[in-house]
Amino acid sequence: MSAKKNRRIAVAKTYKIYIGGKFPRTESGRYFTLEDKQGNVIANLCRSSRKDFRNAVVAARKAQPGWAKASAYLRGQILYRTAEMLEGRREQFVAELVLQASTQRAAEQEVDLSIDRLIYFAGWTDKYQQVFSAVNPVNSSHFNFSVLEPTGVVSMLVPDSSSLLGLISNVAPAIAGGNTCIALASESKPLCAVSFAEVLHAADVPGGVVNILTGFRSELTEFFASHMDVNAVIYCDGGKAVAKTVQELAANNIKRVIARSRMDWSGDAENPYLIRDTQEVKTTWHPIGN
C-alpha cells in the first residue's frame, strides 16, 4: 500500500456487501473501520442494518426455488468453479489474511483448505441424496420413499476467528443442498468474506443464492434468528448468551437451529452430515396395486 518508491498510487479496494448478486453499500450509510496492529486504517466496511438483512432475505427467498431445481450436477460444477476462482485469487486471500494479523503460513494453509473444502462439497452435490434417502418397505400395498429437500433460506452467523474457512465450511454445505443463505461475515476479520463474494459472483453462482453482510454481530444476531421468512439459522461460537437468544427467537417460526460451536474448522468440517443439517425429509406414498 505504501507509495515509498513514488511510482504510482495504489488503488485501494472498497469492501461492499453482497445482496442478490449485486454489491451495494449498506442502505444505512454506516461504516466501521478495520485497523491493523499499528492502528493504520485497512478498510472501511459496511455496518449493515436490519434493512440490509431483510433485503438479503428477500433476495435469498427469490433465488431459492430456482437453485433447488438446478440439477445436482450443475450445483456441483458451480461449486467446483468457485474453487477454481478461489485458487486463481489465492495470493489475494493470503494477503488479506496476513493484513488481518495472520501469519503467512497460517494464511496459506487456511486458503488452501478453503479451496479444498469447496471441492469436497462440490463432489457431494450428486451423492448425499443417495446416502441419505430411502425406499421404505411399508406393510401395505404402497410404494414409499423418502428423499431430502432443502429446508429453504438459511441465515448464518459464521465463525469470527476462521474468517474464510469457517465461512466456506458453512456456506458450501448449505448451498450444495439447494438452500440459499445470508451470512454475516467475521466481524474482526471481514475482508475475505467480501472478496469471497466476488469469487462467488465470478463463478456464476446465481444472484441471491449466497448473500454476505458485514457488520456488528451484537446488532444483527437477533434479526438473523427472528426473521419469519428464514427456515434455519446456524450460529457458530458466541457462548451461552448468544445460544439462548438465537434459540429463543428462532422458536417464533419453529426455525431449525444449528449450533456449530467449538468446531475445528480445519479438521472437523468435512462430512455430509453438514449438508443434512439443512435438509428436510419428504416421504411420498403411492399405491402399487398388489
Binding site: 431449525r256 419428504k282 416421504t283 406414498w285
Partner: peptide, 25 residues
C-alpha cells in the same frame, strides 16, 4: 414432509413422518 399420492392418511413404522416449516422439527 409427507405426501400421499392417490391415497391418504397411511402410516407405517418404516415410513418417516414429520413436518416442514411450522409443522415441526
Amino acid at each position: 414432509g409427507v405426501i400421499w399420492a392417490n391415497t391418504f392418511n397411511k402410516f407405517d413404522p418404516t415410513s418417516p413422518f414429520g413436518g416442514y416449516k411450522e409443522s415441526g422439527v
